[in-house]
Design a protein around this nucleic acid. Structure first.
Lengths: 142, 142
DNA sequence: ATAACTGCAAATCATTTGCAGTCGA
DNA sequence: TCGACTGCAAATGATTTGCAGTTAT
């Protein structure tokens, strides 16, 4: 879907790691699943492609991708980690609690909010990947 | 510290539950711990008062308090739930990743941000207890 | 008196780890 | 070739559950 923008192989090699068929499948699965896939979805998609794939391999690969910055994590309100292939631009998300739809937010508004908080409280805010939840227009009606 | 504003006993009774010495200790522990105490801190404080107290009792009590709205939960970026005795007014928090200081935010700014997101995207946003992380003025310097 | 509650011990379940064999560069 | 990687099986560790005895009302 969207992970050819970055040279995954080079990034792995630069740190002494290797690209393997399993890691490729796992990257594909992260893309195939919805944006911000929880680990369960990644596992599900990955095992459709390779049923032999062990959960431990998936956990290890995802942790490595995150460490290398190839994959981003956001925490949802239930405390479940949601993974997404890194995009060139920082952004946040709006997620429908009911139907699961996830919008990518242009970060302007959110940044403005953070800058205001910073100027008022003197903090340096450091939330790269906000996951805002609510109801989308469709689900709001019912 | 701050939990006499609400009539805990009445709220429990209204739903057919009872106030017990253990539950009282657990409420005290939630207050004694910092704002937004993770369960580990609640356990620690509660067991200083009553070393016999079983973890399962604490988990059950906290879950009940949350269900009844006596205690609020916020999720931090590590996916750890943080508990706090309910205050009369809705609010959010600013938390220093380094020293752990937690500020209570007047919700005006955050509400304005949510209202803007709502008007742009048509969502109904429903985040009652945001936990924003960063560095406080002091820690920013080092 | 009678449910609700507690402590204990056992069960659960997602995640992690150790290891021996496999595979990528 | 050689060290990184994988699958398997076992360990871990936080949270949950069942149960028999206790306690609040």
């Amino acid at each position: 879907m969207s992970h050819d923008q970055i040279n995954y192989i080079a990034t792995l090699h630069d740190s002494g790691y290797r690209m393997t068929t399993q890691r490729q499948v796992i990257l594909d699965a992260i893309c195939a699943a919805d944006e911000h896939a929880p680990i369960t979805k990644i596992l599900f998609h990955a095992r459709q492609i390779d049923p032999q794939l062990d959960p431990s391999t998936v956990y290890r690969a995802v942790a490595l991708f995150v460490e290398l910055g190839l994959v981003l994590v956001a925490m949802d309100e239930q405390g479940e980690k949601r993974y997404e292939v890194a995009k060139p631009h920082p952004h946040h998300h709006l997620h429908c609690r009911n139907c699961g739809q996830t919008l990518t937010l242009d970060s302007k508004l959110t940044d403005a909010y953070f800058r205001e908080l910073e100027s008022i409280h003197g903090y340096q805010i450091d939330m790269d990947h906000l996951f805002i939840e609510g109801l989308c227009p469709g689900c709001k009606r019912s």
